[in-house]
């Protein structure tokens, strides 16, 4: 009988301890970020959808239309084609579309791009009314992009290299 009473008393005591914890949190400041008014800065390595890099010297893309990213992509989201123009060494990029509805942000395309012509963008609030809104024409968006001088280091060998 005694341990039954002890259990009842320790039980009610545990209830009051629980209440004490929640009331303490009631008076503590709020933790949440009020989204539309405040936004969180994205980490430098955040993987948004991929975008073409504007080379600071030429102001053009570095893409040599080799199609490595197209082959590496598991879900065939990237379509790249270019054309030969006389007087220009190598192919010129004419179309670079990304079907973001199927992209799984795995990074195999960025990793397989030898001239480092594509990188991850930082925007995350992508709202669209139709599926077609998610077929991005990266070549067209290239003009609006700021020239990216320092590329985000990825796949670097060790921490020292990441420093510079």
């Amino acid at each position: 009988m005694i341990d039954y009473l002890k259990e009842v008393i320790s039980g009610t005591w545990s209830l009051f301890v629980g209440l004490g914890i929640t009331i303490r949190y009631f008076f503590q400041p709020v933790v949440t970020v009020q989204y539309p008014y405040q936004t969180l800065p994205m980490a430098p390595r955040f993987r948004g959808h991929i975008e073409l890099v504007k080379d600071e010297e030429t102001g053009e893309t570095r893409c040599i239309v080799c199609g490595m990213c197209q082959k590496a992509c598991p879900s065939h989201c990237i379509t790249v084609n270019g054309e030969k123009r006389e007087g220009v060494q190598g192919k010129v990029l004419t179309e670079y579309t990304l079907d973001f509805t199927r992209c799984s942000l795995c990074g195999l395309c960025v990793e397989s791009c030898t001239p480092k012509a594509i990188t991850f963008s930082k925007d995350y609030n992508l709202a669209g009314l139709s599926k077609e809104a998610y077929i991005f024409d990266l070549k067209a968006e290239l003009s609006s992009l700021p020239a990216q001088t320092k590329l985000m280091p990825f796949g670097c060998k060790n921490r020292l290299e990441a420093k510079n």
Partner: peptide
């Protein structure tokens, strides 16, 4: 409101 503040949200 009370539930929110207990859970530290608005």
């Amino acid at each position: 409101k009370e539930a929110a503040h207990i859970q530290r949200r608005i």
